[in-house]
Protein backbone atom coordinates (compact mmCIF):
# COMPACT_ATOMS: atom_id res chain seq x y z
CA UNK A 1 0.00 0.00 0.00
CA UNK A 2 1.47 3.34 -1.02
CA UNK A 3 1.27 6.53 1.04
CA UNK A 4 -1.80 7.89 -0.77
CA UNK A 5 -3.74 4.69 -0.26
CA UNK A 6 -2.72 4.59 3.39
CA UNK A 7 -3.77 8.20 3.84
CA UNK A 8 -7.10 7.56 2.07
CA UNK A 9 -7.75 4.54 4.24
CA UNK A 10 -6.90 6.48 7.36
CA UNK A 11 -9.13 9.37 6.28
CA UNK A 12 -12.06 7.08 5.44
CA UNK A 13 -11.58 5.46 8.83
CA UNK A 14 -11.75 8.80 10.62
CA UNK A 15 -14.60 10.02 8.37
CA UNK A 16 -16.66 6.98 9.21
CA UNK A 17 -19.54 7.76 11.56
CA UNK A 18 -18.43 4.76 13.61
CA UNK A 19 -14.88 6.01 14.18
CA UNK A 20 -15.80 7.04 17.72
CA UNK A 21 -18.53 4.60 18.63
CA UNK A 22 -19.08 6.08 22.09
CA UNK A 23 -19.84 9.42 20.48
CA UNK A 24 -22.01 7.65 17.93
CA UNK A 25 -24.07 6.14 20.76
CA UNK A 26 -24.39 9.48 22.50
CA UNK A 27 -25.54 11.13 19.28
CA UNK A 28 -28.25 8.70 18.33
CA UNK A 29 -29.41 6.82 21.42
CA UNK A 30 -32.19 9.26 22.27
CA UNK A 31 -33.72 9.13 18.80
CA UNK A 32 -33.45 5.35 18.56
CA UNK A 33 -34.97 4.98 22.02
CA UNK A 34 -37.82 7.29 21.02
CA UNK A 35 -38.55 5.31 17.83
CA UNK A 36 -38.61 2.04 19.76
CA UNK A 37 -40.56 3.43 22.69
CA UNK A 38 -43.23 4.87 20.39
CA UNK A 39 -43.66 1.47 18.75
CA UNK A 40 -43.62 -0.65 21.88
CA UNK A 41 -44.99 1.70 24.57
CA UNK A 42 -42.83 -0.18 27.06
CA UNK A 43 -39.87 1.66 28.58
CA UNK A 44 -37.97 -1.46 29.69
CA UNK A 45 -38.43 -3.19 26.37
CA UNK A 46 -37.49 0.00 24.53
CA UNK A 47 -34.27 0.26 26.53
CA UNK A 48 -33.39 -3.35 25.83
CA UNK A 49 -34.12 -3.06 22.12
CA UNK A 50 -32.18 0.21 21.91
CA UNK A 51 -29.15 -1.55 23.34
CA UNK A 52 -29.66 -4.42 20.91
CA UNK A 53 -29.90 -1.91 18.08
CA UNK A 54 -26.50 -0.39 18.86
CA UNK A 55 -24.89 -3.77 19.33
CA UNK A 56 -26.21 -4.87 15.97
CA UNK A 57 -25.10 -1.57 14.43
CA UNK A 58 -21.60 -2.17 15.81
CA UNK A 59 -21.52 -5.68 14.43
CA UNK A 60 -22.87 -4.64 11.02
CA UNK A 61 -21.10 -1.28 10.73
CA UNK A 62 -19.13 -2.49 7.73
CA UNK A 63 -22.40 -2.92 5.81
CA UNK A 64 -23.22 0.79 6.05
CA UNK A 65 -22.49 2.09 2.56
CA UNK A 66 -23.29 5.71 3.21
CA UNK A 67 -26.09 5.82 0.63
CA UNK A 68 -28.54 7.08 3.26
CA UNK A 69 -28.37 9.00 6.50
CA UNK A 70 -26.95 7.19 9.49
CA UNK A 71 -30.16 7.60 11.44
CA UNK A 72 -32.20 6.08 8.57
CA UNK A 73 -29.91 3.06 8.70
CA UNK A 74 -30.22 2.89 12.51
CA UNK A 75 -34.00 3.28 12.32
CA UNK A 76 -34.12 0.35 9.93
CA UNK A 77 -32.23 -1.82 12.42
CA UNK A 78 -34.48 -0.65 15.27
CA UNK A 79 -37.68 -1.31 13.30
CA UNK A 80 -36.48 -4.77 12.32
CA UNK A 81 -35.73 -5.52 15.97
CA UNK A 82 -39.22 -4.42 17.00
CA UNK A 83 -40.73 -6.53 14.21
CA UNK A 84 -38.65 -9.53 15.26
CA UNK A 85 -39.69 -9.03 18.85
CA UNK A 86 -43.39 -9.14 18.03
CA UNK A 87 -42.89 -11.98 15.57
CA UNK A 88 -41.27 -14.06 18.28
CA UNK A 89 -44.04 -13.36 20.72
CA UNK A 90 -44.72 -17.05 21.08
CA UNK A 91 -41.46 -17.37 22.94
CA UNK A 92 -42.21 -14.37 25.10
CA UNK A 93 -43.73 -16.40 27.92
CA UNK A 94 -40.66 -18.62 28.18
CA UNK A 95 -38.37 -15.62 27.94
CA UNK A 96 -40.30 -13.87 30.68
CA UNK A 97 -40.10 -16.92 32.90
CA UNK A 98 -36.36 -17.24 32.34
CA UNK A 99 -35.87 -13.53 32.92
CA UNK A 100 -37.93 -13.70 36.09
CA UNK A 101 -35.96 -16.63 37.42
CA UNK A 102 -32.57 -15.44 36.38
CA UNK A 103 -32.42 -11.73 36.73
CA UNK A 104 -34.44 -10.66 39.69
CA UNK A 105 -31.41 -8.84 41.14
CA UNK A 106 -30.86 -7.25 37.74
CA UNK A 107 -34.39 -5.94 37.71
CA UNK A 108 -33.97 -4.59 41.21
CA UNK A 109 -30.81 -2.85 40.12
CA UNK A 110 -32.60 -1.46 37.07
CA UNK A 111 -35.32 -0.09 39.30
CA UNK A 112 -32.70 1.45 41.55
CA UNK A 113 -30.87 3.22 38.77
CA UNK A 114 -33.85 4.07 36.54
CA UNK A 115 -33.40 7.78 35.89
CA UNK A 116 -32.40 8.79 39.42
CA UNK A 117 -32.65 12.47 38.46
CA UNK A 118 -36.37 12.25 37.71
CA UNK A 119 -38.93 12.75 40.45
CA UNK A 120 -41.79 10.27 41.00
CA UNK A 121 -44.17 12.90 39.58
CA UNK A 122 -42.13 13.09 36.41
CA UNK A 123 -42.16 9.30 36.13
CA UNK A 124 -45.92 9.31 36.50
CA UNK A 125 -46.43 12.07 33.98
CA UNK A 126 -44.17 10.39 31.44
CA UNK A 127 -46.11 7.17 31.85
CA UNK A 128 -49.44 8.95 31.43
CA UNK A 129 -48.36 10.72 28.27
CA UNK A 130 -46.91 7.55 26.86
CA UNK A 131 -50.23 5.82 27.50
CA UNK A 132 -52.07 8.66 25.81
CA UNK A 133 -49.82 8.51 22.74
CA UNK A 134 -50.09 4.75 22.73
CA UNK A 135 -53.90 4.92 22.82
CA UNK A 136 -53.87 7.10 19.70
CA UNK A 137 -51.78 4.75 17.60
CA UNK A 138 -52.80 1.41 19.10
CA UNK A 139 -55.56 0.84 16.56
CA UNK A 140 -53.22 1.41 13.60
CA UNK A 141 -51.65 -1.46 11.73
CA UNK A 142 -47.90 -1.94 12.20
CA UNK A 143 -46.94 -0.43 8.79
CA UNK A 144 -49.24 2.54 9.39
CA UNK A 145 -47.76 3.07 12.84
CA UNK A 146 -44.20 2.89 11.54
CA UNK A 147 -44.91 5.39 8.77
CA UNK A 148 -46.76 7.79 11.06
CA UNK A 149 -44.20 7.77 13.85
CA UNK A 150 -41.19 8.16 11.59
CA UNK A 151 -42.90 11.00 9.78
CA UNK A 152 -44.55 12.84 12.65
CA UNK A 153 -42.08 12.23 15.45
CA UNK A 154 -38.77 11.94 13.65
CA UNK A 155 -39.62 14.22 10.73
CA UNK A 156 -38.36 11.77 8.13
CA UNK A 157 -39.28 12.18 4.47
CA UNK A 158 -41.25 9.56 2.51
CA UNK A 159 -38.04 8.34 0.84
CA UNK A 160 -36.24 8.00 4.17
CA UNK A 161 -39.18 6.15 5.69
CA UNK A 162 -39.25 3.87 2.65
CA UNK A 163 -35.57 3.05 3.18
CA UNK A 164 -35.99 2.55 6.92
CA UNK A 165 -39.03 0.30 6.58
CA UNK A 166 -37.88 -1.48 3.42
CA UNK A 167 -41.03 -0.51 1.52
CA UNK A 168 -41.68 1.41 -1.67
CA UNK A 169 -42.29 5.16 -1.33
CA UNK A 170 -45.79 4.78 -2.82
CA UNK A 171 -46.68 2.16 -0.25
CA UNK A 172 -45.34 4.34 2.56
CA UNK A 173 -47.38 7.26 1.30
CA UNK A 174 -50.49 5.11 1.29
CA UNK A 175 -49.81 3.81 4.83
CA UNK A 176 -49.17 7.34 6.06
CA UNK A 177 -52.40 8.61 4.53
CA UNK A 178 -54.45 5.79 6.06
CA UNK A 179 -52.74 6.30 9.42
CA UNK A 180 -53.65 9.97 9.43
CA UNK A 181 -57.22 9.26 8.41
CA UNK A 182 -57.50 6.73 11.24
CA UNK A 183 -55.97 9.22 13.64
CA UNK A 184 -58.53 11.82 12.63
CA UNK A 185 -61.36 9.33 13.13
CA UNK A 186 -59.98 8.46 16.56
CA UNK A 187 -59.73 12.17 17.48
CA UNK A 188 -63.33 12.75 16.43
CA UNK A 189 -64.56 9.78 18.46
CA UNK A 190 -62.59 10.94 21.49
CA UNK A 191 -63.97 14.47 21.04
CA UNK A 192 -67.53 13.13 20.98
CA UNK A 193 -66.87 11.01 24.10
CA UNK A 194 -65.50 13.98 26.01
Amino acid sequence: MNMVQAATAARSETDSPFADFDEFIRLYQQRVYRVVLAQTADADLAEELTQDCFIRAFQKRSSFRGDCQVFTWLARIAINLVRDHYRNRKLALWRRLVRFERSEPEQERAEEVRDPAATPEEHLLRRERLERASARIRHLTAPQREALLLSAVEGMSIEEIARATNRRPGTVKSHLHRAMMNLRTWNRQEGQRN
Partner: peptide
Protein backbone atom coordinates in the same frame (compact mmCIF):
# COMPACT_ATOMS: atom_id res chain seq x y z
CA UNK B 1 -48.60 13.00 19.35
CA UNK B 2 -45.01 14.13 18.86
CA UNK B 3 -45.01 16.08 22.14
CA UNK B 4 -46.41 13.15 24.08
CA UNK B 5 -43.84 10.75 22.70
CA UNK B 6 -40.93 13.15 23.10
CA UNK B 7 -41.90 13.90 26.67
CA UNK B 8 -42.35 10.26 27.63
CA UNK B 9 -39.03 9.37 26.01
CA UNK B 10 -37.23 12.16 27.86
CA UNK B 11 -34.66 11.14 30.44
CA UNK B 12 -31.99 12.86 32.42
CA UNK B 13 -28.39 13.10 31.24
CA UNK B 14 -27.42 10.72 34.06
CA UNK B 15 -29.78 8.11 32.73
CA UNK B 16 -28.60 8.51 29.14
CA UNK B 17 -25.05 8.12 30.40
CA UNK B 18 -26.03 4.94 32.22
CA UNK B 19 -27.63 3.56 29.08
CA UNK B 20 -24.62 4.53 27.00
CA UNK B 21 -22.30 2.70 29.40
CA UNK B 22 -24.66 -0.29 29.34
CA UNK B 23 -24.43 -0.44 25.56
Amino acid sequence: LRQDICYSAGRSAIDWGRQSRGI
